[in-house]
């Protein structure tokens, strides 16, 4: 665990920023790659590493940062929904209903989509928890955060390697 403590720290930070509305809209898809880059820097400082860095290590650090960020980001989002019994989905529900009704699909399918959506919103408004919503949040965050974590790890490792080779020159 200590070996990858830097990913835990950076992932936690990214997870927190992911649910802060203002930071969320500021940073778009930059939070996770930057967190991965920070994780690499922290790892090198903690282990007193200098010189070139293997890209596979950057990839692993980025991947782990993404995974931690997904775990923390999802947990915070589910927890806040549980307390407030409100979230983006509930706010956008009337608009979503209108949108689904306009789909060029069979009426039975549209009805099923309405039922599923309303049951999710009903669960959130009454108990603050919906299994389907929580599953969607976790799955989405896992996929997206790991991809952006890997990208951040790859770019970060190259920037750090080029910096250290410049110093050597």
């Amino acid at each position: 665990m200590r070996k990858y403590l830097s990913t835990f720290v950076a992932g936690f930070g990214a997870g927190v920023l992911q649910i802060v509305p203002v930071a969320k809209s500021f940073s778009c898809c930059l939070i996770i790659p930057v967190a991965a880059y920070i994780a690499i820097i922290l790892d090198r400082r903690a282990n007193n590493l200098t010189g070139q860095m293997k890209l596979s290590k950057g990839l692993i650090l980025g991947l782990l940062t993404g995974l931690w960020a997904a775990l923390f980001g999802s947990s915070f989002e589910i927890f806040i929904t549980l307390i407030t019994k409100n979230n983006d989905l509930v706010v956008a529900y009337p608009e979503l209903q209108k949108m689904i009704s306009e789909f060029p699909l069979a009426s039975s399918m549209i009805e099923q989509a309405h039922e599923m959506l309303s049951s999710v919103v009903y669960d959130i408004q009454n108990s603050g928890f919906s299994f389907l919503y929580s599953f969607a949040v976790i799955a989405n965050n896992l996929v997206i955060n790991t991809i952006f974590g890997i990208i951040g790890g790859l770019i970060g490792a190259q920037i750090i390697s080029s910096k250290s080779s410049n110093r050597l020159e």
Partner: peptide
């Protein structure tokens, strides 16, 4: 193209993961 509305809706959820879409 009306059928694009379904793709918009499905992919819109996925795209909102990587962008705030204000």
């Amino acid at each position: 193209f009306q059928w694009l509305k379904i793709i918009d809706f499905i992919s819109g959820r996925a795209y909102s993961l990587v962008c705030h879409r204000v």
